[in-house]
Design a protein around this nucleic acid. Structure first.
Length: 571
DNA sequence: GCCGTTTTCGGCCCGACTGTTTTCAGTCG
Protein backbone atom coordinates (compact mmCIF):
# COMPACT_ATOMS: atom_id res chain seq x y z
CA UNK A 1 0.00 0.00 0.00
CA UNK A 2 1.34 3.42 -0.97
CA UNK A 3 1.80 6.36 1.36
CA UNK A 4 -1.02 8.25 -0.35
CA UNK A 5 -3.42 5.35 0.21
CA UNK A 6 -2.46 5.21 3.89
CA UNK A 7 -3.04 8.95 4.21
CA UNK A 8 -6.48 8.63 2.63
CA UNK A 9 -7.49 5.89 5.07
CA UNK A 10 -6.21 7.81 8.11
CA UNK A 11 -8.26 10.81 7.03
CA UNK A 12 -11.30 8.57 6.47
CA UNK A 13 -10.92 7.15 9.97
CA UNK A 14 -10.82 10.69 11.34
CA UNK A 15 -14.10 11.49 9.59
CA UNK A 16 -15.74 8.24 10.66
CA UNK A 17 -14.75 8.90 14.27
CA UNK A 18 -16.23 12.39 14.07
CA UNK A 19 -19.47 10.93 12.74
CA UNK A 20 -19.46 8.40 15.51
CA UNK A 21 -19.27 11.26 17.96
CA UNK A 22 -15.89 10.32 19.39
CA UNK A 23 -13.71 12.80 21.20
CA UNK A 24 -12.69 15.41 18.63
CA UNK A 25 -9.06 15.16 19.59
CA UNK A 26 -9.04 11.52 18.73
CA UNK A 27 -10.02 12.25 15.12
CA UNK A 28 -7.61 15.14 15.12
CA UNK A 29 -4.83 12.70 15.98
CA UNK A 30 -5.62 10.80 12.76
CA UNK A 31 -5.68 13.98 10.69
CA UNK A 32 -2.42 15.14 12.25
CA UNK A 33 -0.77 11.81 11.55
CA UNK A 34 -1.96 11.92 7.92
CA UNK A 35 -0.68 15.46 7.63
CA UNK A 36 2.72 14.61 9.04
CA UNK A 37 3.04 11.56 6.81
CA UNK A 38 2.44 13.85 3.85
CA UNK A 39 5.52 15.87 4.70
CA UNK A 40 8.07 13.10 5.23
CA UNK A 41 10.07 12.25 2.17
CA UNK A 42 11.20 8.80 3.21
CA UNK A 43 9.61 5.67 1.79
CA UNK A 44 6.83 4.45 4.05
CA UNK A 45 7.76 0.80 3.45
CA UNK A 46 11.26 1.47 4.75
CA UNK A 47 9.91 3.25 7.84
CA UNK A 48 7.68 0.27 8.57
CA UNK A 49 10.42 -2.30 8.02
CA UNK A 50 12.88 -0.44 10.20
CA UNK A 51 10.24 0.17 12.83
CA UNK A 52 10.77 3.94 12.76
CA UNK A 53 7.20 5.18 12.34
CA UNK A 54 7.07 6.44 15.91
CA UNK A 55 9.89 8.87 15.18
CA UNK A 56 7.37 10.87 13.15
CA UNK A 57 5.63 13.58 15.11
CA UNK A 58 2.02 12.71 15.86
CA UNK A 59 2.47 8.97 15.42
CA UNK A 60 2.48 7.00 18.65
CA UNK A 61 2.20 3.37 19.49
CA UNK A 62 -1.40 2.85 18.36
CA UNK A 63 -1.08 4.64 15.03
CA UNK A 64 2.28 3.05 14.25
CA UNK A 65 0.70 -0.35 14.75
CA UNK A 66 -2.26 0.50 12.50
CA UNK A 67 -0.09 1.96 9.75
CA UNK A 68 2.16 -1.09 9.88
CA UNK A 69 -0.84 -3.38 9.48
CA UNK A 70 -2.01 -1.32 6.49
CA UNK A 71 1.35 -1.29 4.76
CA UNK A 72 2.11 -4.97 5.32
CA UNK A 73 -1.32 -6.50 4.68
CA UNK A 74 -3.11 -3.82 2.67
CA UNK A 75 -5.96 -3.98 5.17
CA UNK A 76 -6.86 -2.73 8.62
CA UNK A 77 -9.25 -4.57 10.90
CA UNK A 78 -10.02 -1.43 12.91
CA UNK A 79 -10.99 0.47 9.74
CA UNK A 80 -13.17 -2.41 8.52
CA UNK A 81 -15.09 -2.52 11.80
CA UNK A 82 -15.49 1.23 11.85
CA UNK A 83 -17.01 1.17 8.38
CA UNK A 84 -19.52 -1.41 9.55
CA UNK A 85 -20.58 0.81 12.43
CA UNK A 86 -20.74 3.97 10.35
CA UNK A 87 -21.60 3.57 6.66
CA UNK A 88 -18.95 5.11 4.44
CA UNK A 89 -21.63 6.95 2.42
CA UNK A 90 -22.19 9.28 5.36
CA UNK A 91 -18.77 10.85 4.79
CA UNK A 92 -19.91 12.36 1.50
CA UNK A 93 -22.87 13.95 3.30
CA UNK A 94 -20.40 16.12 5.24
CA UNK A 95 -19.97 18.09 2.00
CA UNK A 96 -23.47 19.49 2.35
CA UNK A 97 -23.27 22.89 4.06
CA UNK A 98 -25.13 22.94 7.35
CA UNK A 99 -24.77 19.22 7.89
CA UNK A 100 -22.20 18.06 10.39
CA UNK A 101 -21.59 14.78 12.19
CA UNK A 102 -24.41 15.17 14.70
CA UNK A 103 -27.17 15.89 12.23
CA UNK A 104 -25.96 13.25 9.81
CA UNK A 105 -26.10 10.67 12.58
CA UNK A 106 -29.65 11.77 13.48
CA UNK A 107 -30.63 11.23 9.85
CA UNK A 108 -28.96 7.83 9.83
CA UNK A 109 -30.37 6.66 13.17
CA UNK A 110 -33.95 7.84 12.65
CA UNK A 111 -34.53 7.53 8.89
CA UNK A 112 -31.75 5.10 8.03
CA UNK A 113 -30.30 7.48 5.42
CA UNK A 114 -26.87 6.44 4.12
CA UNK A 115 -26.54 8.29 0.81
CA UNK A 116 -27.06 11.79 -0.57
CA UNK A 117 -29.58 10.32 -3.01
CA UNK A 118 -31.74 8.98 -0.18
CA UNK A 119 -31.44 12.27 1.69
CA UNK A 120 -32.67 14.15 -1.36
CA UNK A 121 -35.73 11.93 -1.59
CA UNK A 122 -36.79 12.43 2.05
CA UNK A 123 -36.28 16.19 1.70
CA UNK A 124 -38.53 16.24 -1.33
CA UNK A 125 -41.15 14.27 0.61
CA UNK A 126 -40.97 16.75 3.49
CA UNK A 127 -40.02 13.91 5.81
CA UNK A 128 -37.28 15.92 7.45
CA UNK A 129 -39.83 18.21 9.09
CA UNK A 130 -40.92 15.39 11.36
CA UNK A 131 -37.53 15.23 13.01
CA UNK A 132 -36.63 17.37 16.01
CA UNK A 133 -34.36 20.29 15.14
CA UNK A 134 -35.11 20.07 11.44
CA UNK A 135 -37.31 22.82 10.06
CA UNK A 136 -38.43 23.83 6.58
CA UNK A 137 -35.51 26.24 6.45
CA UNK A 138 -32.99 23.50 7.23
CA UNK A 139 -34.60 21.21 4.68
CA UNK A 140 -34.43 23.87 1.97
CA UNK A 141 -30.80 24.57 2.77
CA UNK A 142 -29.94 20.88 2.58
CA UNK A 143 -31.74 20.53 -0.77
CA UNK A 144 -29.90 23.55 -2.11
CA UNK A 145 -26.61 22.05 -0.95
CA UNK A 146 -27.40 18.72 -2.60
CA UNK A 147 -28.21 20.42 -5.89
CA UNK A 148 -24.92 22.31 -5.71
CA UNK A 149 -23.02 19.09 -5.17
CA UNK A 150 -24.89 17.34 -7.95
CA UNK A 151 -23.93 20.08 -10.36
CA UNK A 152 -20.32 19.48 -9.46
CA UNK A 153 -20.49 15.72 -9.30
CA UNK A 154 -18.72 15.15 -12.59
CA UNK A 155 -16.14 17.89 -12.03
CA UNK A 156 -12.67 17.58 -10.55
CA UNK A 157 -10.02 19.91 -9.23
CA UNK A 158 -7.25 20.61 -11.72
CA UNK A 159 -4.43 18.65 -10.05
CA UNK A 160 -6.51 15.46 -9.98
CA UNK A 161 -6.77 15.50 -13.76
CA UNK A 162 -3.27 16.80 -14.39
CA UNK A 163 -1.56 14.06 -12.42
CA UNK A 164 -3.64 11.29 -13.99
CA UNK A 165 -3.23 12.69 -17.49
CA UNK A 166 0.55 12.86 -17.15
CA UNK A 167 0.69 9.27 -15.98
CA UNK A 168 -1.47 8.03 -18.86
CA UNK A 169 0.60 10.02 -21.37
CA UNK A 170 3.77 8.42 -19.95
CA UNK A 171 2.31 4.97 -20.56
CA UNK A 172 1.26 5.85 -24.10
CA UNK A 173 4.64 7.35 -24.95
CA UNK A 174 6.31 4.08 -24.06
CA UNK A 175 4.43 2.38 -26.91
CA UNK A 176 6.42 2.05 -30.13
CA UNK A 177 3.22 2.68 -32.06
CA UNK A 178 2.77 6.19 -30.69
CA UNK A 179 4.43 8.93 -32.73
CA UNK A 180 3.22 12.05 -30.96
CA UNK A 181 1.12 12.26 -27.84
CA UNK A 182 -0.17 15.28 -25.91
CA UNK A 183 -2.73 16.31 -23.35
CA UNK A 184 -5.42 18.46 -24.97
CA UNK A 185 -8.70 19.94 -23.77
CA UNK A 186 -9.25 21.82 -20.55
CA UNK A 187 -6.08 20.49 -18.90
CA UNK A 188 -3.96 21.96 -21.67
CA UNK A 189 -5.86 25.22 -21.24
CA UNK A 190 -5.22 25.00 -17.48
CA UNK A 191 -8.84 25.37 -16.44
CA UNK A 192 -9.43 25.47 -12.68
CA UNK A 193 -11.91 22.59 -12.70
CA UNK A 194 -12.08 19.73 -15.15
CA UNK A 195 -14.71 17.37 -16.47
CA UNK A 196 -12.55 14.96 -18.41
CA UNK A 197 -9.08 14.17 -19.68
CA UNK A 198 -8.56 14.64 -23.42
CA UNK A 199 -5.58 12.97 -25.02
CA UNK A 200 -4.39 13.23 -28.58
CA UNK A 201 -1.95 10.85 -30.25
CA UNK A 202 -0.68 10.23 -33.75
CA UNK A 203 0.09 6.81 -35.09
CA UNK A 204 0.20 4.61 -38.15
CA UNK A 205 -1.38 1.84 -36.07
CA UNK A 206 -4.28 3.47 -34.22
CA UNK A 207 -5.70 0.11 -33.21
CA UNK A 208 -2.55 -0.73 -31.22
CA UNK A 209 -2.68 2.67 -29.50
CA UNK A 210 -6.30 2.06 -28.54
CA UNK A 211 -5.21 -1.25 -27.01
CA UNK A 212 -2.60 0.45 -24.86
CA UNK A 213 -5.06 3.13 -23.75
CA UNK A 214 -8.06 0.96 -22.96
CA UNK A 215 -6.05 -1.71 -21.16
CA UNK A 216 -4.11 0.77 -19.05
CA UNK A 217 -4.08 0.35 -15.26
CA UNK A 218 -6.09 3.53 -14.62
CA UNK A 219 -9.07 2.46 -16.74
CA UNK A 220 -12.09 1.09 -14.91
CA UNK A 221 -14.59 0.82 -17.72
CA UNK A 222 -14.57 1.18 -21.51
CA UNK A 223 -17.46 3.26 -22.82
CA UNK A 224 -16.56 3.05 -26.49
CA UNK A 225 -13.64 1.88 -28.55
CA UNK A 226 -13.14 2.75 -32.18
CA UNK A 227 -10.40 3.28 -34.76
CA UNK A 228 -9.97 7.00 -34.11
CA UNK A 229 -11.69 7.59 -30.81
CA UNK A 230 -12.11 5.73 -27.53
CA UNK A 231 -13.75 6.79 -24.28
CA UNK A 232 -13.23 5.31 -20.85
CA UNK A 233 -14.13 5.85 -17.23
CA UNK A 234 -11.04 5.97 -15.02
CA UNK A 235 -10.68 4.39 -11.58
CA UNK A 236 -11.54 7.67 -9.85
CA UNK A 237 -14.74 8.09 -11.91
CA UNK A 238 -13.31 10.68 -14.28
CA UNK A 239 -13.99 10.35 -18.00
CA UNK A 240 -11.14 10.23 -20.49
CA UNK A 241 -11.17 10.40 -24.30
CA UNK A 242 -8.39 9.64 -26.70
CA UNK A 243 -8.26 10.60 -30.35
CA UNK A 244 -5.72 9.07 -32.68
CA UNK A 245 -4.90 10.78 -35.98
CA UNK A 246 -2.25 10.55 -38.68
CA UNK A 247 0.98 12.32 -37.83
CA UNK A 248 0.44 14.94 -40.55
CA UNK A 249 -2.95 15.78 -39.01
CA UNK A 250 -1.56 16.22 -35.50
CA UNK A 251 -1.29 20.04 -35.36
CA UNK A 252 -4.84 20.53 -36.65
CA UNK A 253 -6.25 17.94 -34.29
CA UNK A 254 -4.26 19.35 -31.37
CA UNK A 255 -5.74 22.77 -31.93
CA UNK A 256 -9.22 21.35 -32.43
CA UNK A 257 -9.21 19.25 -29.28
CA UNK A 258 -7.56 21.89 -27.14
CA UNK A 259 -10.48 24.24 -27.70
CA UNK A 260 -12.15 26.04 -26.10
CA UNK A 261 -15.36 25.69 -28.00
CA UNK A 262 -15.71 29.48 -27.94
CA UNK A 263 -12.20 30.01 -29.28
CA UNK A 264 -12.67 27.41 -32.04
CA UNK A 265 -16.02 28.82 -33.10
CA UNK A 266 -14.62 32.35 -33.30
CA UNK A 267 -11.62 31.20 -35.31
CA UNK A 268 -13.78 29.19 -37.73
CA UNK A 269 -15.89 32.28 -38.19
CA UNK A 270 -12.82 34.32 -39.09
CA UNK A 271 -11.60 31.59 -41.42
CA UNK A 272 -14.89 31.36 -43.22
CA UNK A 273 -14.69 35.03 -44.11
CA UNK A 274 -11.41 34.23 -45.85
CA UNK A 275 -12.94 31.26 -47.62
CA UNK A 276 -11.04 28.84 -45.42
CA UNK A 277 -12.46 25.75 -43.74
CA UNK A 278 -10.98 24.33 -40.51
CA UNK A 279 -11.61 20.98 -38.90
CA UNK A 280 -9.61 18.47 -36.87
CA UNK A 281 -8.00 17.06 -40.01
CA UNK A 282 -6.70 20.23 -41.58
CA UNK A 283 -7.11 23.75 -42.90
CA UNK A 284 -8.59 23.80 -46.37
CA UNK A 285 -8.67 26.53 -49.00
CA UNK A 286 -10.72 25.58 -52.04
CA UNK A 287 -10.74 21.97 -50.82
CA UNK A 288 -6.93 22.02 -50.83
CA UNK A 289 -5.06 21.24 -47.62
CA UNK A 290 -2.72 23.92 -46.29
CA UNK A 291 0.13 22.05 -44.71
CA UNK A 292 1.26 22.88 -41.15
CA UNK A 293 4.00 21.22 -39.18
CA UNK A 294 2.91 22.59 -35.80
CA UNK A 295 0.49 24.99 -34.12
CA UNK A 296 2.75 27.97 -34.90
CA UNK A 297 2.20 27.27 -38.57
CA UNK A 298 -1.46 26.75 -37.87
CA UNK A 299 -1.97 30.24 -36.46
CA UNK A 300 0.41 31.61 -39.09
CA UNK A 301 -2.13 30.71 -41.77
CA UNK A 302 -4.39 33.39 -40.29
CA UNK A 303 -1.60 35.92 -39.92
CA UNK A 304 -1.51 35.35 -36.19
CA UNK A 305 1.28 34.70 -33.73
CA UNK A 306 1.10 31.48 -31.69
CA UNK A 307 -1.65 31.67 -29.07
CA UNK A 308 -0.73 29.87 -25.82
CA UNK A 309 -3.41 27.29 -24.94
CA UNK A 310 -4.25 29.08 -21.68
CA UNK A 311 -5.48 32.11 -23.63
CA UNK A 312 -7.79 30.21 -25.96
CA UNK A 313 -11.05 31.26 -24.33
CA UNK A 314 -12.18 33.88 -26.84
CA UNK A 315 -11.23 36.66 -24.47
CA UNK A 316 -9.69 38.76 -27.20
CA UNK A 317 -6.75 36.49 -28.02
CA UNK A 318 -7.57 36.20 -31.72
CA UNK A 319 -7.62 39.96 -32.23
CA UNK A 320 -4.45 40.44 -30.18
CA UNK A 321 -2.62 37.62 -31.98
CA UNK A 322 -3.39 39.26 -35.32
CA UNK A 323 -1.79 42.49 -34.18
CA UNK A 324 1.13 40.72 -32.57
CA UNK A 325 0.02 42.07 -29.21
CA UNK A 326 -0.27 38.93 -27.14
CA UNK A 327 1.29 39.29 -23.70
CA UNK A 328 4.60 37.68 -22.86
CA UNK A 329 3.03 35.44 -20.24
CA UNK A 330 4.53 34.93 -16.81
CA UNK A 331 6.19 31.55 -16.35
CA UNK A 332 6.99 29.55 -13.25
CA UNK A 333 10.68 30.38 -13.78
CA UNK A 334 9.94 34.08 -13.36
CA UNK A 335 8.88 33.56 -9.76
CA UNK A 336 11.63 34.69 -7.40
CA UNK A 337 10.09 34.41 -3.97
CA UNK A 338 7.17 33.14 -1.96
CA UNK A 339 4.60 35.31 -0.20
CA UNK A 340 1.78 34.02 2.06
CA UNK A 341 3.06 31.04 3.96
CA UNK A 342 1.88 29.78 7.37
CA UNK A 343 4.41 28.51 9.87
CA UNK A 344 3.93 26.45 12.99
CA UNK A 345 3.37 29.69 14.88
CA UNK A 346 -0.24 29.34 13.65
CA UNK A 347 -1.74 26.44 11.68
CA UNK A 348 1.19 25.58 9.41
CA UNK A 349 3.17 22.49 10.22
CA UNK A 350 6.72 23.59 9.41
CA UNK A 351 9.05 25.87 11.32
CA UNK A 352 10.17 29.11 9.72
CA UNK A 353 13.66 27.69 9.26
CA UNK A 354 12.28 24.59 7.51
CA UNK A 355 10.28 26.86 5.22
CA UNK A 356 13.36 28.95 4.47
CA UNK A 357 15.32 25.85 3.55
CA UNK A 358 12.48 24.54 1.37
CA UNK A 359 12.37 27.88 -0.46
CA UNK A 360 16.14 27.94 -0.97
CA UNK A 361 16.05 24.38 -2.27
CA UNK A 362 13.57 25.49 -4.91
CA UNK A 363 15.73 28.46 -5.90
CA UNK A 364 13.65 31.19 -4.28
CA UNK A 365 15.42 34.08 -2.60
CA UNK A 366 12.81 35.42 -0.24
CA UNK A 367 9.89 34.29 1.86
CA UNK A 368 7.00 36.28 3.27
CA UNK A 369 5.70 34.63 6.42
CA UNK A 370 2.04 35.39 7.08
CA UNK A 371 0.48 33.49 9.94
CA UNK A 372 -3.10 33.96 11.04
CA UNK A 373 -4.08 36.93 13.16
CA UNK A 374 -5.53 36.80 16.65
CA UNK A 375 -9.23 36.53 15.69
CA UNK A 376 -8.58 33.27 13.88
CA UNK A 377 -8.36 31.38 17.12
CA UNK A 378 -9.28 28.10 15.44
CA UNK A 379 -6.09 28.43 13.40
CA UNK A 380 -3.84 29.45 16.26
CA UNK A 381 -3.83 33.15 15.36
CA UNK A 382 -0.90 35.08 16.83
CA UNK A 383 -1.09 37.06 20.07
CA UNK A 384 0.99 40.19 20.51
CA UNK A 385 3.63 38.23 22.40
CA UNK A 386 3.84 35.57 19.72
CA UNK A 387 4.30 38.23 17.04
CA UNK A 388 7.18 39.69 19.04
CA UNK A 389 8.75 36.27 19.42
CA UNK A 390 8.30 35.49 15.73
CA UNK A 391 9.90 38.75 14.69
CA UNK A 392 12.89 38.04 16.90
CA UNK A 393 13.26 34.63 15.30
CA UNK A 394 12.99 36.14 11.81
CA UNK A 395 15.69 38.70 12.69
CA UNK A 396 17.92 35.88 13.87
CA UNK A 397 17.29 33.77 10.75
CA UNK A 398 17.83 36.75 8.46
CA UNK A 399 21.31 37.05 9.92
CA UNK A 400 21.94 33.33 9.69
CA UNK A 401 20.80 33.10 6.04
CA UNK A 402 22.26 36.37 4.81
CA UNK A 403 21.69 35.63 1.12
CA UNK A 404 18.03 34.96 1.75
CA UNK A 405 15.39 37.36 2.98
CA UNK A 406 12.47 36.65 5.27
CA UNK A 407 9.72 39.24 5.33
CA UNK A 408 7.57 39.76 8.38
CA UNK A 409 3.92 39.52 7.45
CA UNK A 410 0.55 38.54 8.81
CA UNK A 411 -2.69 37.32 7.30
CA UNK A 412 -4.96 39.65 9.19
CA UNK A 413 -8.67 38.92 9.41
CA UNK A 414 -10.82 41.61 7.89
CA UNK A 415 -13.38 41.93 10.68
CA UNK A 416 -17.09 42.35 9.88
CA UNK A 417 -16.78 46.12 10.24
CA UNK A 418 -13.86 46.21 7.79
CA UNK A 419 -11.15 46.91 10.32
CA UNK A 420 -7.97 44.88 10.58
CA UNK A 421 -7.18 42.69 13.52
CA UNK A 422 -4.46 44.64 15.39
CA UNK A 423 -3.85 48.17 16.56
CA UNK A 424 -1.70 50.56 14.59
CA UNK A 425 1.42 49.93 16.63
CA UNK A 426 1.33 46.22 15.83
CA UNK A 427 0.33 46.70 12.19
CA UNK A 428 3.31 49.03 11.80
CA UNK A 429 5.70 46.29 12.86
CA UNK A 430 5.06 44.14 9.76
CA UNK A 431 6.73 44.37 6.35
CA UNK A 432 3.45 43.43 4.68
CA UNK A 433 -0.13 42.66 5.60
CA UNK A 434 -2.50 40.35 3.78
CA UNK A 435 -6.11 41.19 4.63
CA UNK A 436 -8.48 38.24 4.29
CA UNK A 437 -12.08 37.45 5.19
CA UNK A 438 -12.54 34.32 7.29
CA UNK A 439 -15.90 34.96 8.93
CA UNK A 440 -19.39 36.42 8.32
CA UNK A 441 -19.54 35.43 4.65
CA UNK A 442 -23.26 35.98 4.24
CA UNK A 443 -23.44 39.74 3.98
CA UNK A 444 -25.43 41.69 1.42
CA UNK A 445 -23.36 42.68 -1.60
CA UNK A 446 -23.06 46.38 -0.79
CA UNK A 447 -22.22 45.75 2.87
CA UNK A 448 -19.58 43.16 2.00
CA UNK A 449 -18.12 45.42 -0.69
CA UNK A 450 -17.87 48.31 1.76
CA UNK A 451 -16.33 46.04 4.37
CA UNK A 452 -13.56 45.03 1.96
CA UNK A 453 -13.06 48.56 0.66
CA UNK A 454 -12.67 49.85 4.20
CA UNK A 455 -9.89 47.31 4.72
CA UNK A 456 -8.28 48.25 1.39
CA UNK A 457 -8.13 51.89 2.45
CA UNK A 458 -6.30 50.94 5.64
CA UNK A 459 -2.80 52.34 5.02
CA UNK A 460 -1.14 49.19 6.37
CA UNK A 461 -2.89 46.75 4.06
CA UNK A 462 -0.62 45.42 1.31
CA UNK A 463 -2.44 42.47 -0.26
CA UNK A 464 -6.10 41.46 -0.55
CA UNK A 465 -6.09 37.73 0.29
CA UNK A 466 -8.29 35.23 -1.60
CA UNK A 467 -10.50 38.09 -2.82
CA UNK A 468 -13.80 36.20 -3.28
CA UNK A 469 -13.47 33.47 -0.64
CA UNK A 470 -14.71 30.77 -2.99
CA UNK A 471 -13.91 27.10 -2.54
CA UNK A 472 -13.95 25.39 -5.92
CA UNK A 473 -16.72 22.79 -6.32
CA UNK A 474 -17.88 23.52 -2.81
CA UNK A 475 -18.71 27.08 -2.01
CA UNK A 476 -19.49 30.15 -4.08
CA UNK A 477 -17.53 33.30 -3.30
CA UNK A 478 -19.14 36.00 -1.21
CA UNK A 479 -21.25 38.56 -3.01
CA UNK A 480 -19.15 41.59 -3.91
CA UNK A 481 -18.96 44.32 -6.50
CA UNK A 482 -15.63 43.38 -8.05
CA UNK A 483 -15.48 46.52 -10.15
CA UNK A 484 -15.52 48.77 -7.09
CA UNK A 485 -12.97 46.59 -5.33
CA UNK A 486 -10.62 46.67 -8.31
CA UNK A 487 -10.85 50.46 -8.44
CA UNK A 488 -10.23 50.76 -4.74
CA UNK A 489 -7.22 48.43 -4.82
CA UNK A 490 -5.64 50.40 -7.64
CA UNK A 491 -6.26 53.71 -5.91
CA UNK A 492 -4.78 52.48 -2.62
CA UNK A 493 -1.91 50.42 -4.05
CA UNK A 494 -3.29 47.19 -2.67
CA UNK A 495 -2.20 44.07 -4.53
CA UNK A 496 -4.59 41.31 -5.55
CA UNK A 497 -3.69 37.86 -4.35
CA UNK A 498 -3.92 35.00 -6.79
CA UNK A 499 -4.36 32.35 -4.12
CA UNK A 500 -2.73 29.33 -5.72
CA UNK A 501 -4.27 26.70 -3.48
CA UNK A 502 -5.89 24.45 -6.13
CA UNK A 503 -9.10 24.30 -4.09
CA UNK A 504 -9.37 28.09 -4.22
CA UNK A 505 -7.58 29.60 -7.25
CA UNK A 506 -8.97 32.90 -6.14
CA UNK A 507 -9.11 35.55 -7.69
CA UNK A 508 -10.75 33.96 -10.73
CA UNK A 509 -8.82 34.43 -13.99
CA UNK A 510 -11.93 35.86 -15.65
CA UNK A 511 -11.55 39.05 -13.55
CA UNK A 512 -7.82 39.42 -14.02
CA UNK A 513 -7.43 40.71 -17.54
CA UNK A 514 -9.79 43.65 -17.09
CA UNK A 515 -8.28 44.48 -13.69
CA UNK A 516 -4.79 44.44 -15.17
CA UNK A 517 -5.84 46.77 -17.96
CA UNK A 518 -6.98 49.25 -15.32
CA UNK A 519 -3.60 48.99 -13.58
CA UNK A 520 -4.03 46.32 -10.91
CA UNK A 521 -1.05 44.39 -9.53
CA UNK A 522 -0.97 40.78 -8.41
CA UNK A 523 0.95 38.36 -6.23
CA UNK A 524 0.92 34.58 -6.77
CA UNK A 525 0.67 33.06 -3.29
CA UNK A 526 0.72 29.41 -2.32
CA UNK A 527 -1.09 30.00 1.01
CA UNK A 528 1.12 27.10 2.07
CA UNK A 529 0.70 25.33 5.38
CA UNK A 530 3.65 23.00 4.80
CA UNK A 531 6.88 22.98 2.82
CA UNK A 532 5.25 20.79 0.18
CA UNK A 533 2.43 23.25 -0.45
CA UNK A 534 4.91 25.86 -1.65
CA UNK A 535 4.57 24.00 -4.94
CA UNK A 536 0.99 25.26 -5.24
CA UNK A 537 2.57 28.30 -6.88
CA UNK A 538 2.48 26.47 -10.19
CA UNK A 539 -1.33 26.41 -10.11
CA UNK A 540 -1.35 30.12 -9.41
CA UNK A 541 0.93 30.69 -12.39
CA UNK A 542 -1.65 28.85 -14.52
CA UNK A 543 -4.33 31.27 -13.33
CA UNK A 544 -2.08 34.28 -13.92
CA UNK A 545 -1.38 33.10 -17.45
CA UNK A 546 -5.08 32.63 -18.11
CA UNK A 547 -5.51 36.20 -16.92
CA UNK A 548 -2.92 37.49 -19.46
CA UNK A 549 -0.39 38.47 -16.79
CA UNK A 550 3.26 39.17 -17.46
CA UNK A 551 6.28 39.21 -15.24
CA UNK A 552 5.94 42.93 -14.58
CA UNK A 553 2.44 42.46 -13.16
CA UNK A 554 3.53 40.06 -10.42
CA UNK A 555 4.96 41.17 -7.09
CA UNK A 556 6.85 37.96 -6.39
CA UNK A 557 8.52 38.03 -9.77
CA UNK A 558 10.59 40.89 -8.36
CA UNK A 559 14.09 39.81 -7.57
CA UNK A 560 15.84 39.68 -4.25
CA UNK A 561 17.14 43.24 -4.29
CA UNK A 562 13.88 44.78 -5.51
CA UNK A 563 11.65 43.12 -2.96
CA UNK A 564 13.27 44.92 -0.04
CA UNK A 565 11.77 48.10 -1.36
CA UNK A 566 8.72 46.43 -2.79
CA UNK A 567 6.34 49.08 -1.55
CA UNK A 568 8.27 51.75 -3.36
CA UNK A 569 8.54 49.57 -6.43
CA UNK A 570 4.81 48.97 -6.58
CA UNK A 571 3.91 52.54 -5.81
C1' DG B 1 -4.88 9.12 19.98
C1' DC B 2 -0.51 11.85 21.01
C1' DC B 3 2.33 14.46 23.97
C1' DG B 4 4.89 15.78 27.91
C1' DT B 5 5.67 15.40 31.73
C1' DT B 6 5.04 17.92 38.00
C1' DT B 7 5.29 9.34 35.26
C1' DT B 8 -0.28 8.79 34.96
C1' DC B 9 -3.37 11.79 33.08
C1' DG B 10 -4.92 16.42 31.61
C1' DG B 11 -4.52 19.27 27.64
C1' DC B 12 -5.09 19.45 22.87
C1' DC B 13 -9.20 24.00 18.97
C1' DC B 14 -11.81 28.23 20.54
C1' DG B 15 -15.49 31.73 19.51
C1' DA B 16 -19.11 33.56 16.45
C1' DC B 17 -22.99 32.54 14.05
C1' DT B 18 -27.22 29.95 12.90
C1' DG B 19 -31.29 27.89 13.55
C1' DT B 20 -34.40 26.25 16.63
C1' DT B 21 -35.97 27.75 20.78
C1' DT B 22 -36.56 30.82 24.64
C1' DT B 23 -31.13 28.80 26.55
C1' DC B 24 -28.33 26.06 23.61
C1' DA B 25 -26.46 22.40 20.40
C1' DG B 26 -24.43 22.13 16.08
C1' DT B 27 -21.72 24.00 12.43
C1' DC B 28 -17.93 26.45 10.56
C1' DG B 29 -13.58 28.62 9.99
Amino acid sequence: MTKQEVIKILNDIGLLLELKGENFFKSKAYYDAANNLEIIEEDIGVLVNENRLQNIKGIGKALAQKITELVLTGELEYYKNLKQEVPEGLISMLRIPGLGPKKIMILYNTLGITTIEELKKVCENNELLELPKFSKKTQDKILEGINNIKENLDKYHYPVGEILAEEIIDILKQSKYVQKCEIAGSIRRKKEVLKDIDILASSEKPDEVMNVFTSCYYVKEIISRGETKSSVILQNGMKSDIRVVKDSQFPFALHHFTGSKEHNTALRHLAKKKGIKINEYGIFKDEKLIDCKDEEDFFGVFGMEFIPPELRENYGELEAAKENKLPNLISINDIRGVIHVHSNYSDGNASIEQLVQACMKRGYTYLGISDHSKTAIYAGGLTHDEIKRQHEEIDYLNEKYSKFQILKGIESDILPDGSLDYNEKILKSFDFIIGSIHSSFNMAEDIMTNRIIKAITNPYMTILGHPTGRLLLRREGYKINMDKIVNSCIKNNVIFEINANPYRLDIDWRYIKAAKEKGAKFVISPDAHSTKEIEYIKYGVNVARKGWLEKKDILNALDHSEIANYKKVIN
